[in-house]
């Protein structure tokens, strides 16, 4: 049995359709990602899975239960890390966890022990009794993650877990999440960062405008929708289309962006040689590996960065 099963899931707010009939299955122990730009419907989906937002239409089962009828039972087995760091700034790190533990009916003593362990796990053990207010963004996010683990959840929902963090803080969060996964916890996360999706997810869906446009493992998606390498060519800003005509036939595919041209090719250096062979002299040339960004661009015709 899948832990999460959605069929034809729809969420509407008035006239606006946030989630437009998606099918998703998440198996125990995997790390599953929703990748997409802001407004793609990721957070609405997460809120439905978190049983705080009833689906407008379609089927949703979590642990085989109905989120509307069995909301409390499901939520007691979920851990949720919301997008904003909604912490009690007046309280200490430890109190933030123990207060939250009471909502799960965890006895005080157990809650305190568990909270200490979790603070150690997210490397905030020495901050247990200091207030939350002065913590850095990365520390606060780790504290939110610790709070989401207080009920020893089987599934942890993470809504954009590293948005707004600096590179070091992000890597620390990723590393802790990876450890969680190794312990057998199922992770479901949303992100608009390709590197995050590639680092953390076993499997992911790409969402755009409320719909799923692709689903697979990150590497498989890249192989299916992109080439092994991409060449980025810049020629100044005018007349990119005429250059595109002259480049026809180089590589497998070509994409014209407002500021540059992308050439999709199995062998990037070979493609660059062909460009020069046609007498073209780009102002800059960059050969790189394909990423999920290219997949997304291919699927939707837009870049992910918003």
């Amino acid at each position: 049995m899948s832990l999460i099963e959605a069929q034809g899931l729809v969420k509407r707010f008035g006239d606006f359709t946030a989630v437009d009939g998606i099918d998703v299955r998440v198996e125990a122990g995997e790390a599953f990602g929703f990748l997409g730009p802001n407004g793609a419907g990721k957070s609405s989906t997460m809120r439905m899975v978190g049983c705080v937002s009833p689906p407008t239409d379609g089927q949703l089962r979590i642990f085989g239960m109905d989120p509307v009828r069995d909301g409390p039972a499901i939520r007691s087995r979920l851990g949720v890390c919301p997008q904003q760091d909604s912490l009690d700034l007046e309280l200490t790190c430890l109190e933030n966890l123990t207060v939250y533990a009471r909502y799960f009916g965890i006895p005080r003593k157990v809650a305190r022990e568990r909270a200490r362990e979790l603070l150690d796990f997210v490397q905030l053990g020495d901050r247990a009794d200091s207030p939350v207010e002065p913590l850095s963004g990365g520390m606060k996010r780790r504290l939110v993650i610790a709070r989401a683990l207080i009920n020893e959840p089987e599934i942890v929902l993470l809504d954009e877990p590293t948005t707004g963090l600096d590179p070091q803080a992000r890597h620390l969060v990723w590393e802790r999440l990876f450890r969680l996964k190794q312990r057998g916890v199922t992770l479901v996360l949303t992100t608009h960062y390709m590197d995050e999706a590639e680092q953390l997810c076993d499997r992911l869906v790409v969402m755009d405008a409320g719909k799923i446009v692709a689903e697979d493992a990150p590497r498989a998606l890249i192989e299916r929708y992109s080439t092994r390498e991409v060449v980025e060519l810049r020629f100044g800003l005018d007349g990119l289309d005429t250059y595109a005509d002259k480049l026809a036939g180089v590589g497998e595919r070509l994409e014209v962006l407002p500021d540059r041209i992308l050439l999709y090719a199995a062998d990037g250096d070979d493609a660059v040689a062909q460009v020069h062979g046609r007498g073209l002299t780009p102002s800059s040339v960059l050969v790189r590996r394909s990423t999920l960004e290219d997949v997304f661009l291919h699927l939707t015709g837009r870049t992910l960065v918003d």
């Binding site: 978190g50 919301p82 909604s86 009690d88 909502y103």
Partner: peptide
């Protein structure tokens, strides 16, 4: 601001 209610709602309280 603190979104305290939203956090409570993620736990099994009504």
């Amino acid at each position: 601001w603190s979104r305290r209610y939203e956090v409570m709602r993620t736990a099994p309280v009504r």
